[in-house]
């Protein structure tokens, strides 16, 4: 049921993000909601779900962009996979942890993007300008992440409680 909620939510966010662009632009940069939701899935759901959400919605981002097929799906899949793999060793509920992982994931996403564009497509992107924008986007994502995580956790309340229970059980074992 939660997966249905999250899919519906992602579609709504995605539509708003691609249609009402003015609402989200700060210094010419937009936040990446799909990335934030991938980080959330990695921190609070399981690894496979995080990978699948990252890959599937990254692919939609690629398809609606130009000459980017495979870039976002790869980077978001890797982010979902990495955070999902670390999930059991970190305290996901901690806001600092959430912010730190979102910031690192945003940087990782940008670095994969520029590496592929420069390395495979020989794109003439100014690296310094790109990193300036990447820093702004990473900070923007980091600022928004706890708010979105809080909202998703509200919807996911029962599942999270179950998750906590399982974690405590594992600790006592």
């Amino acid at each position: 049921m939660f997966l249905l909620y999250i899919t519906a939510l992602i579609i709504v966010i995605f539509l708003l993000e691609t249609v009402v662009i003015d609402l989200f632009i700060v210094r010419g940069v937009k936040p990446d909601f799909i990335l934030i939701i991938t980080v959330y899935s990695g921190l609070f759901l399981n690894k496979t779900t995080a990978e699948t959400i990252g890959f599937a919605f990254g692919l939609i981002q690629d398809a609606l962009s130009f000459k980017q097929m495979g870039i976002n799906s790869l980077s978001k899949f890797l982010i979902g996979y990495s955070i999902g793999s670390l999930r059991e060793n970190i305290l996901s509920e901690n806001v600092i942890v959430q912010c730190l992982f979102t910031f690192i994931a945003s940087c990782m996403n940008g670095i994969i993007y520029i590496l592929i564009l420069k390395g495979l497509f020989y794109s003439e992107i100014e690296v310094l300008d790109f990193f300036k924008d990447l820093l702004i986007q990473s900070l923007y994502n980091t600022f928004l992440a706890p708010i979105i995580f809080f909202m998703l956790n509200k919807v996911h309340f029962n599942n999270v409680r179950e998750f906590r229970g399982r974690k405590e059980e594992a600790r006592t074992d």
Binding site: F55, L59, A63, K67, M69, S73, L74, F77
Partner: peptide, 26 residues
């Protein structure tokens, strides 16, 4: 997932401007 991503990247490099079937569907 890795294989699919690399496949899409390869298609992207090879066919460039033409929309792939995934792009058309999406």
């Amino acid at each position: 997932f890795l294989l699919l991503s690399f496949l899409f990247l390869t298609v992207n490099i090879k066919f460039g401007y033409a929309p792939t079937f995934v792009e058309s569907i999406v």
